[in-house]
Design a protein around this nucleic acid. Structure first.
Lengths: 182, 182
DNA sequence: GGGTTACGTCAACATCTGTTGACTTAGGGC
DNA sequence: GCCCTAAGTCAACAGATGTTGACGTAACCC
């Protein structure tokens, strides 16, 4: 229950839920405080200000644990699996959504991108090896995610389904197969 | 000069510039009015309210003229060319940016997506033929655009350069080459 | 008990936002 | 001139938002 957590924890959890679902500037402190069942003024006590609260939700944000227990060979299957899970619910907040929703905000956008680059992106480069292939791989994930979740492209909608997983798998493989032309 | 245009025109132009660069909710009417050298109250007179002003900027928004004078064969080259132009300036507002920046807003997001689907997306489906390939094609454009402009993926940054144009070309071709497995 | 400290509550602040109505001005038709 | 309509100006509204300081309360240490 929520009762089992400290006030600070409830505030941080409510903040993460709200920020990840609807971005930084579209969420108000009073709304977060209401969801957490807590007074607004406590934001200042525990996190300084709104930006500090947002930063706190970023710390344990990027979960690469599911990717970490994977070797290079079934990286594609892992990504497809993660994608199908996230696709069950279109409203499911994802890292990519968080980045896109805050892309237009200078300070917050830079924070999110930096956190992503330090974790997810560097992980892909390490596993895949070649930075160009890693970038293309990431671009495929981005494109598929955006096509489905932000653009709501009809032909991509049931990406979690077996049929569209095949398409995602095909494009990921194409990215890994890229050969630089010298 | 701005003087050559009517007050209503100046308002609409300033609105498009602002909305396309920084999204709907992040732009204020007073700011648009100031840029246009016009009183805020005129928004009500000419466009009803803020949403009406935004809708007006969408009307002539999606420019498919560059794509229209293209046959299927050099579609890839056309896209790569458009992309390299847009990449000259990272702050250059694009249709995709506009969609992403407003993805989290219910009403405005739906408006933008609908306008895009009616024009750009349906055009691609008509030229490419197969809807699945068209969707993958669009996903590649989305991924490349997002990787560069929103995520600021370093390996994708100079996408307008010859080297990265090759990568974009490669992925677009892969999308068109997709064969459905029966 | 006295005093200190952590934890919360409450009301208010200054600011910004979209929106509105009353007022002024210009111009054209009669 | 007179009237009427369109165009533009101005001040203010009601509401929301981030932030803040004063105040209460309970626990804990000595």
């Amino acid at each position: 229950m929520d009762q089992d957590f400290t006030t600070k924890d409830r505030l941080q959890r409510a903040a993460k839920t709200a920020f990840w679902a609807r971005g930084y500037s579209n969420v108000t402190l009073r709304e977060i405080a209401r969801d957490a069942g807590v007074d607004v003024a406590l934001v200042k006590r525990y996190f300084g200000d709104k930006l500090g609260l947002f930063a706190a939700t970023l710390d344990a944000a990027f979960d690469t644990s599911a990717l970490a227990q994977t070797n290079g060979t079934d990286l594609i299957e892992t990504v497809v699996h993660l994608f199908s899970i996230a696709s069950r619910n279109l409203n499911d907040p994802s890292v990519i959504r968080l980045i896109l929703m805050n892309a237009h905000e200078a300070e917050v956008g830079a924070m999110v991108r930096a956190a992503h680059a330090k974790q997810m992106q560097s992980y892909l480069e390490r596993v895949i090896g070649d930075p160009t292939r890693a970038a293309l791989f990431m671009a495929v994930i981005l494109g598929a995610s955006v096509a489905e979740k932000s653009l709501r492209l009809q032909a991509m909608a049931p990406m979690g389904s077996p049929k569209h997983s095949a398409e995602l798998r095909y494009m990921l493989q194409a990215a890994l197969a890229y050969e630089e032309t010298k």
